[in-house]
């Protein structure tokens, strides 16, 4: 999927996360993760985010994640939603989400 506009998903509430995506200025994919549990889980969050993006076929853009201690399933869900919104996707390929 191609991110064509700025989009947002999620919240800053505990156990949730806010994901912002934008087309980005460069050509590649930039992921910036910030988390309340950065030291213990920063690497894992980054991995889940990148894995989710890869399954969606996102190869370019800026993805900023503000994590509040969310479970992996919530991280995946918020990244997927932000990408769908940013790609202006009208239909969902559910197989890319599971």
């Amino acid at each position: 999927m191609k991110i064509v506009k700025e989009a947002l998903a999620g919240t800053l509430e505990s156990s949730d996360l806010l994901v912002k995506v934008s087309p980005g200025s460069g050509t590649g994919l930039e992921v910036v993760v910030s988390s309340e549990v950065m030291q213990q889980f920063g690497h894992q969050i980054d991995h889940v985010v990148r894995d989710t993006l890869a399954r969606l076929g996102v190869t370019a853009g800026l993805v900023v994640v503000e994590d509040k201690g969310a479970l992996d399933c919530a991280i995946r869900a918020r990244v997927q939603t932000a990408v769908m919104r940013g790609a202006e996707a009208q239909t969902i390929d559910w197989s890319a989400l599971s």
């Binding site: 947002l8 999620g10 919240t11 800053l12 509430e13 505990s14 806010l18 509040k68």
Partner: peptide
């Protein structure tokens, strides 16, 4: 946190 989430949305 909810307030900030809402205003950003």
């Amino acid at each position: 946190l909810t307030l900030l989430s809402e205003v950003v949305h």
